[in-house]
Structure formats: structure tokens, C-alpha cells
Amino acid sequence: MQNGVPWWYFHKAGGALEGTRLGAVDPGGEIWQRIRPERVIGSVVYPAVEVDAPGLIRHVEGTRFSLGEPSGEKSERATALAREMVKAGLQAPVREDIRSEIWVKLWGNLSFNPISALTGSTLAAIVADEATRAVARAMMLEAQAIGERLGVRFPISVDRRIKGAGDVGEHKTSMLQDLERGRPMEIDALVTAVQELGRLTGQPTPTIDSVLALVRRLAIERGCY
């Protein structure tokens, strides 16, 4: 379970990029070689939480953790894991296209997380402000173009996804929380990897590039990169 583009993304993905290692999240293919992608069950994490203190996590909302095999099959191991998670009171649907669901979640993380770190704003504040909402939307449209070149299906519109983020309310993104606590931020998994996918697919990412440059510089200055 992780946010952003997973290191195993191109395992059993098919197409010309099958087996490609992503340097942004797996430099030198170290994770691919040591853990091995065939051991992976993908997961998309939806709950919103905040770290109030070391070891004290406040649950804001959500209990869904979607699961899915990289190959798209509904395997026994995935369904067995889902059963155990449901017993624990969680929602754990097994998806046949986990990558598309990864992108719908990534849509928001890619844009709202770095914007929140740069501005100190909550999700609701970013969406309510016309200017920051426009920046987020531009980043999301660039990401959508990349995803569609990779065969991803986006079941909802950009504007509906933006509204969903705003509906979470006065929630600080994980990237902003990490910045405030001096912890490393998930810049590479959430933003740099998307930029890398843009290069691999020949899709320009001017807004993503600009925001990435700013948030990376901020992280370096604060010792959070």
C-alpha cells in the first residue's frame, strides 16, 4: 500500500514499456530486483488521516483500500487478503484494473499535495481559491493525457475529482504534514514519477514541471528531500 506511482507499475502491464523500471521511485531497479514484482498485490489507499503526535494517528474519514493484481486477474491470494481486511471492518474491493484506480487517486495527490506544501493550505482552501484550483486542474489534465497514453481509463471527470478533494474539507495533505514536521516528503512518488512517465510517453508536462521545481526546492531548503 503506497501513494503515487508504484515501482512495479510496468510489471505485466503489456505494451512497449512492459518491464520498464522507473528511476524516480526505484533508482537502478533495486526494489524490482530485491523484492520482485511477482510478489506484489497493488493497493490504493483512500482514508484521510493526520499525525497528531508520534504514534498518534487521527482518522479523518474513509475505510477503503482497493486491491488488484498487476496482471488484472482476480487471484485467490488477492481475494483471500480482501476477506481478511473486510473481517477487520475495512472495505477492500478487488479490482481488475488497479492501475486506472491508482491514477484516479494519483490525480489528486500529484496536484493538491505539492500545492498544499507550497501554500500551507488545506484541500478545501485550495479548491475554493480560483487560482490554486486552476493550477491543480492544469496538472491533472497533463497527468490525464499521460495516463491515457498508457491505456488508463478515467471513470470520472477532472472537475468531479476536484470537487471530491474539496469535499474532504479542512484536511492537510500528507505532504504538508511531512513538511511541517521536517520529514521527507513523497515528492518523487507523487510528482517526479509522473514527470518521468510524461517523458516516456512523449507528453509535455509544463505545469507539473514548474510545481515540481518549486516544491523540490522548498524540500531541499527545509531538509525534507
Score class of each variant (00 low, 15 high):
174 S>C: 12
167 D>C: 01
174 S>T: 13
200 L>N: 10
177 Q>P: 13
202 G>M: 02
201 T>W: 07
167 D>P: 01
190 L>R: 13
166 G>S: 12
203 Q>G: 00
198 G>E: 03
174 S>P: 12
180 E>A: 12
169 G>F: 09
199 R>A: 14
199 R>L: 09
186 E>S: 11
190 L>N: 06
173 T>L: 09
179 L>A: 12
172 K>Y: 10
168 V>G: 02
188 D>R: 15
185 M>S: 06
167 D>T: 13
201 T>R: 06
179 L>V: 14
199 R>V: 12
193 A>N: 10
179 L>S: 05
182 G>W: 07
196 E>D: 10
190 L>W: 01
181 R>D: 05
204 P>S: 04
204 P>L: 03
195 Q>K: 15
204 P>K: 05
201 T>M: 07
202 G>L: 01
178 D>N: 13
206 P>I: 00
205 T>K: 01
191 V>T: 15
206 P>E: 01
195 Q>G: 03
171 H>A: 11
206 P>M: 01
186 E>T: 08
177 Q>M: 10
203 Q>Y: 00
180 E>N: 04
183 R>Q: 14
187 I>R: 05
197 L>W: 04
191 V>N: 07
191 V>H: 02
191 V>K: 02
171 H>F: 15
205 T>I: 03
203 Q>I: 07
191 V>C: 12
167 D>H: 04
177 Q>L: 10
174 S>Q: 08
184 P>W: 13
184 P>E: 13
203 Q>K: 02
173 T>Q: 10
200 L>Y: 03
186 E>W: 10
205 T>Q: 04
167 D>L: 15
198 G>A: 05
173 T>E: 06
192 T>L: 14
188 D>P: 02
180 E>L: 15
197 L>R: 06
169 G>C: 11
168 V>Y: 09
196 E>H: 09
177 Q>S: 09
192 T>Q: 14
192 T>S: 15
187 I>D: 05
190 L>Y: 02
199 R>I: 01
203 Q>N: 03
175 M>P: 04
201 T>P: 11
183 R>V: 03
189 A>K: 14
203 Q>V: 15
196 E>C: 06
174 S>F: 08
183 R>Y: 14
171 H>G: 02
170 E>Y: 03
172 K>W: 11
172 K>V: 00
196 E>M: 06
205 T>W: 00
174 S>R: 08
191 V>I: 14
204 P>A: 07
195 Q>C: 00
200 L>C: 10
175 M>G: 08
185 M>N: 06
176 L>N: 07
173 T>C: 08
166 G>D: 11
184 P>C: 14
172 K>I: 00
191 V>L: 15
202 G>A: 06
186 E>Y: 09
185 M>L: 12
178 D>T: 12
191 V>W: 00
179 L>P: 01
188 D>E: 15
203 Q>D: 00
204 P>D: 03
179 L>G: 01
194 V>G: 04
193 A>I: 07
